[in-house]
């Protein structure tokens, strides 16, 4: 079970959170073409390595936030609030 740093509550057990999938997807609007729609609905980067993803602190502050995590070693690089861009600095890999 992972230990996750909620930007508002600090470190909490993963069981308090819901996973929200890939972060920074652009929602399709009625103006989007089919490619954009399919990309939004279904296509995922599904990165092996450093990825940006969404979490929801369901049993805590009930807020959504983003995280950068390595999907191979499950190390959290950072967490950040929605609307922010993923911090780009790299830590030791």
């Amino acid at each position: 079970m992972l230990l996750i740093e909620c930007p508002w509550c600090g470190q909490c057990e993963q069981s308090e959170f819901h996973y929200g999938g890939e972060a920074h997807l652009t929602r399709a609007t009625p103006e989007s073409d089919n490619t954009e729609l399919t990309g939004f609905l279904f296509l995922r980067s599904n990165v092996r390595g450093d990825t940006a993803e969404r979490w929801f602190h369901a049993a805590g502050c009930r807020r959504w936030f983003n995280a950068r995590r390595n999907t191979v070693d499950d190390r959290f690089i950072c967490t950040y609030k929605p609307g922010q861009n993923a911090p780009q600095e790299t830590t030791d890999a």
Binding site: G21, T38, G39, F42, L43, R44, S45, N46, V47, R48, T71
Partner: peptide, 18 residues
């Protein structure tokens, strides 16, 4: 589980999550 990784090497994205 590694299909998306292969697809990325061909410049493709798949509707998959591992």
């Amino acid at each position: 589980g590694n299909s998306s990784v292969l697809a990325a090497k061909a410049g493709l994205k798949l509707p998959l999550e591992s």
